[in-house]
Amino acid sequence: MAHMTKEHKARIAAELKKFMPKNWKYSLAVRHHAEIVMTIQSAPIDILAAAGKPDAKEMSLTRYFRASELFKSNPELAELFQKIRDALDLDNHDRSDLMTDYFDVGHYLTINIGKWDKPFQIAA
């Protein structure tokens, strides 16, 4: 059964601080005691345009996205998002069996780039 604690969130936050650019604004939250959610509010680069969605105001990613495919035009951004996903997946497991409709994960993860009520901002 998926479970996320404040202590685990703190370990993930410490891991993210090691490589996240200082001029990016982001937050971490625990949703329903089962999911870690990272919301990127602003960055000096247009992440949405780099992902091929220049008209979007927000975007949500799960653990199954491929950074190299999503950010084909920007290898540095792809590498950073791979590190972000790996950090959010810290101490996680996935023993799910889709054939029997059995799901067993340590925790779920979501990366939001902007939110429905607060669009992503390109920082100057």
Rank of each mutant, 00 (worst) to 15 (best):
M1T: 12
M1D: 11
M1Q: 12
A2D: 08
A2Q: 09
M4L: 12
H8E: 12
H8P: 00
I12G: 04
I12P: 05
A13F: 02
A13I: 01
W24Y: 15
K25T: 13
L28E: 04
V30C: 11
H32F: 12
H32L: 11
A34V: 04
A34C: 06
E35M: 15
V37T: 08
V37G: 06
Q41V: 03
S42V: 01
S42W: 03
I47C: 07
A49K: 15
K53V: 00
K53N: 08
K53R: 12
P54D: 10
D55E: 15
K57L: 12
S60H: 06
L61Y: 10
T62Q: 07
Y64G: 01
A67P: 12
E69R: 12
N74E: 13
P75V: 06
E76A: 15
E76R: 04
L77M: 09
E79V: 03
E79C: 01
K83D: 04
K83A: 12
A87P: 07
A87I: 07
A87S: 13
L90V: 02
N92I: 10
D101P: 00
D101W: 03
Y102Q: 10
Y102G: 01
Y108P: 00
L109Y: 05
L109I: 15
N112Q: 09
I113S: 02
G114V: 11
K115E: 15
W116M: 08
W116V: 09
P119M: 02
P119L: 04
Q121W: 01
